[in-house]
Simulated assay, not measured.
Amino acid sequence: MSDETSWYVLVEDEHLSSGNDEFRLSRVVHVDGNVERAREKALELAKGYDPFGDFKGTRTVFRIGEDSFMTVMSSDGWRKERFRVTVGELIHTEEYFEPPAPDEEKGRRGIFRRSS
C-alpha cells in the first residue's frame, strides 16, 4: 500500500431478525483528506443520512467514541430505528483470484498414460 492514508466512513443500519438486534454494513464512503475530514463527514452523515426512506420524526445523534456516532430516529412516539456511523482507516485490501482451470489435455494424461 502507498504511504498515503485512505480514510472512509462506514454506515451500519440496524436490522431486527428473530428478536436480535443486528447491524449490517450499508454504506462505505471514501473521504478525500485526513482523519479530521473523515470525522466531519461522519458527523454530517449521522445528522443527515436517512436509511429508512422519507423519515419524519425526531433524530438524536450521540458521539459514542472519538470516531463513531449512533443516530436514533424515532417516529410516532414509540418506534425507534438506529444506525451507526464510524470513521475507518483502510489498512489492507486483498483481492481473490480464481485459479486457472487445469488444462484439459493435462487432465487426461494421468499417471498411467504416456505423454506424447
Rank of each mutant, 00 (worst) to 15 (best):
F112S: 12
L10A: 09
F62S: 10
L90S: 06
V31T: 07
E4Y: 06
S74I: 00
F97V: 14
V28A: 06
R24G: 03
R79Q: 06
S18E: 15
F55L: 11
V87H: 03
E40N: 07
E44A: 10
E14C: 01
R27H: 07
K106S: 12
G77R: 09
K106I: 10
E12N: 09
D103C: 05
N20V: 13
P99L: 13
R84L: 15
Y8Q: 15
R24W: 11
E89M: 10
E14T: 03
F23G: 00
G57S: 11
D13T: 09
R79K: 05
L10T: 07
V31C: 08
D103L: 05
F97L: 11
L43F: 13
V28C: 01
E22M: 09
W7T: 03
E98T: 09
V72G: 02
E36M: 11
S74L: 03
V85R: 03
T71F: 14
R39I: 02
V35M: 08
D54A: 15
V85K: 01
D3L: 12
H30R: 15
V31A: 06
E105K: 12
F55E: 10
P102F: 08
R27W: 02
D32E: 15
I64G: 08
V28W: 03
H15P: 00
S74E: 15
F55Y: 07
F83M: 04
E104W: 11
T86P: 01
E66S: 06
A38K: 07
A46Q: 11
Y49L: 07
E14Y: 05
A101Q: 13
G33I: 14
L16M: 15
E40S: 10
M73V: 14
R39G: 01
E22P: 00
T58R: 08
D32I: 07
R109P: 00
E98P: 06
G53A: 06
E94A: 08
S68T: 05
S116D: 12
G65L: 02
R59M: 03
G53I: 08
V11G: 01
F23A: 00
W78Q: 05
P100G: 02
V11S: 02
G19Y: 08
F83S: 05
E98L: 07
V28S: 13
L43Q: 09
P102E: 13
E44C: 02
A38P: 03
F112D: 13
P51G: 15
V9E: 04
V87P: 02
R113S: 13
G65A: 11
I111W: 09
R113A: 10
R114T: 08
L10W: 03
F23D: 01
S74A: 09
G53W: 08
